[in-house]
Nucleic acid binder design. Structure first.
Length: 634
DNA sequence: ATAGGGTTAG
């Protein structure tokens, strides 16, 4: 294959034609072996010839499948002209066989082979047709090989296929995939004629690059839209974290009379998962049932994820149990879901079941498992899983896994061991890892190590307000008020702003949002009055406001007022007011629940006989009868 | 035989 090494795609002189070599590895294998391999399992020219003779004997030499297998092997061995001699007696034209072969390489694991084969075809002076070009361009996209892509582009023009719309689309796609967006855009702008696919390619590629604005511009002006155009935009908005816009667009799509397909459903469900939009999620679930989309594994996986992130673990489990086939993604989603909901035992049980039936875990499965161990304080179990990643499954732990381990160790009070783990990590430490140690230092009151962790955080992630808040809390807990104040001053000096906390609660089909201290809500007056009444009952049940979580230099009374306006309190009061008794209240919050709200919510669940499900930044808290599913360990 | 969306974690 090194015969013509100048440019793989230029037509060669005859001297560069590969020679017909004798087999390098003529190991003799009994013919029966080849038979049982169904003629397709050969890799040396010698085996190839044996297989060929079998193809002829079995009278299959007219079918493309064994022939393109023969051709594929030739592409990787020095038997190219032998393959050609095979094709001489076939009723299909030779280029058709090569095309099918290039295509299967282009769509397989090693698209580079498609490019190698194309080069051999050019070397043999065989004229590519437009299909050949489209397949090899597809391979260039997959291999992100823009230089060969450019050469094929030139060749397309030279061979007179330049005005073929199919090929133009493929070329635009190729440039975009190879990160040559300017070339793609230029070509797109210059195209005399475009079809809906052309527009869709541009839109999809722009959204993949996070350029949702430009994608929207094109979407707005395109002459006609297909389901795929809508889907690309919806998926694009989900990808860049704008789930609300995604759902708006989905509504518009329905109004335009377009019917969602499996891919649309996946994107919309992902948006519901992000927003905790259970009602829409349920509607899409029913729609998927009616359309038979539940046969699709990805639809089910996304459904599971949606229910998990909307706090409906049981429904997620039902969808999981009803699936016809499950992939590692299904198992990982479910394991991670149990971990997120504080049901570590279930997560581990599911993992054993998964292993028993022979599904190999991937790196994401382990993130769920380590989370589960962390939430249950299962240090030994976690250590074992962590070690088994490399030793049993050949998966190198990534930074996220180290983060989980540091979290597990430091939450369990093994702060020194966690610190050692960080110091001996074979990969670069990030803020999340130090942040996990800092969190452990808060729980276990270790000021010195907290200072050490914070030192690194100040370098790695100085704009993250959470770390200042935690360190300040640690000082406050230790009675070191001056130091706590110093941290707050440092925060001001650097210009780090505290992320405003918000919570949302769903009432009927409407999501109501509350920001901490919210006086602007239309029902603010009503909510505050309700809170005062609730507060009396809370105090009778033993609630004592924990003002230490308020890090402002104000007096106790003012601190209480700040505390009582925390967004999750406003949201739960509103939920109690506006939803029927006994129904669960579902709340979402952008930050972690503070200690005081956590204590209050436990009591509220008891006093008002309600299940309160709170989706935190990290996990779920399910408050019921005065207890929380996190067992106060979060 | 030809081009364009999608799942788990962070």
């Amino acid at each position: 294959m090194a015969a013509c090494s100048v440019s793989p795609l230029r037509a060669p002189s005859s001297s560069t034609k590969p020679k017909r070599n004798s087999p390098k590895n003529p190991e003799l294998r009994p013919i029966e072996t080849i038979k049982t391999d169904l003629l397709f399992n050969f890799n040396t020219p010698f085996e190839l010839k044996q297989a060929h003779s079998l193809v002829i004997k079995s009278n299959k030499h007219h079918s493309v499948l064994p022939l393109s297998r023969v051709a594929s092997v030739c592409a990787l061995t020095p038997s190219f002209d032998y393959a050609q001699s095979v094709f001489e007696h076939v009723d299909k034209s030779e280029i058709v066989i090569w095309n099918s072969c290039i295509r299967s390489f282009a769509e397989g694991d090693s698209p580079v082979n498609a490019i190698h084969l194309f080069y051999r075809i050019r070397c043999a002076d065989i004229r590519p047709d437009s299909f050949t070009c489209s397949f090899v361009l597809k391979a260039c996209s997959a291999a992100r090989d823009v230089s060969n892509g450019r050469i094929v582009h030139g060749l397309v023009e030279k061979l007179g296929y330049g005005s073929d719309l199919f090929l133009q689309n493929t070329i635009v796609h190729m440039y975009a995939c190879c990160d040559a967006m300017d070339d793609a855009r230029k070509l797109f702008d210059e195209m005399p004629e475009r079809d809906v696919v052309t527009w869709n390619i541009m839109i999809t590629q722009l959204t993949k690059r996070g350029d949702i604005g430009k994608a929207q511009e094109l979407f707005d002006v395109m002459p006609e839209r297909s389901v795929r155009s809508w889907t690309a935009m919806i998926a694009g908005y989900v990808q860049c974290g704008e789930a609300k816009k995604a759902i708006e667009l989905f509504t518009m799509m329905e109004e335009a009379g377009e019917r969602a397909n499996e891919v649309t459903v996946v994107a919309v469900l992902a948006a519901c998962a992000d927003l905790g939009a259970l009602n829409l999620g349920r509607r899409v679930h029913e729609y998927s049932d009616r359309c038979g989309f539940r046969r699709n594994v990805r639809v089910c996986n996304t459904l599971i994820d949606m229910y998990i992130k909307c706090g409906c673990l049981e429904v997620a489990r039902m969808v999981f149990d009803e699936m016809e086939e499950r992939t590692v993604v299904s198992w990982s989603a479910m394991i991670g879901g149990f971990a997120m909901h504080g049901q570590g035992e279930e997560a581990l049980k599911l993992f054993s079941k998964m292993s028993r039936i022979g599904i190999r875990p991937n790196e994401i499965t382990f993130i769920g498992l380590l989370h589960a161990c962390s939430h249950m304080g299962l240090v030994e179990e976690g250590r074992k899983f962590f070690a088994s990643m490399a030793s049993e499954y050949g998966i190198a732990p990534r930074i996220e896994h180290y983060g989980c381990m540091v979290d597990l160790l430091s939450r369990s009070g093994l702060l020194q061991e966690a610190y050692e783990l960080i110091k001996n990590m074979p990969i670069k430490v990030n803020g999340v890892v130090w942040g996990a140690l800092l969190g452990g230092c808060w729980v276990h009151k270790n000021v010195e190590l907290a200072e050490e962790a914070f030192k690194h955080l100040l370098v790695l992630d100085p704009n993250n307000d959470g770390y200042y808040v935690v360190l300040s809390n640690i000082y406050a807990d230790a009675g070191r008020w001056d130091d706590a104040a110093r941290v707050r001053k440092l925060m001001r000096d650097i210009g780090v702003k505290k992320t405003p906390g918000w919570s949302s609660v769903t009432v009927g089909c409407v999501v109501h949002e509350f920001v901490a201290g919210d006086g602007s809500h239309p029902h603010a007056e009503e909510i505050y009055q309700s809170w005062e009444k609730l507060l009396e009952k809370l105090k009778l049940s033993g609630y004592v406001p924990n003002t230490s979580v308020v890090l402002l230099d104000i007096d106790e009374h003012q601190k209480e007022n700040v505390l009582f306006r925390h967004s999750e309190k406003l949201a739960v009061v509103f939920g109690l007011m506006k939803t029927p008794p006994q129904t669960p209240i579902r709340i979402m919050k952008n930050l972690r629940v503070c200690e005081d709200c956590h204590a209050a919510l436990k009591l509220i669940s008891k006093i008002s006989d309600r299940e309160i499900v709170v989706r935190d930044r990290n996990r779920f808290h399910c408050f019921k009868d005065g207890f929380c599913s996190c067992r106060d360990y979060w």
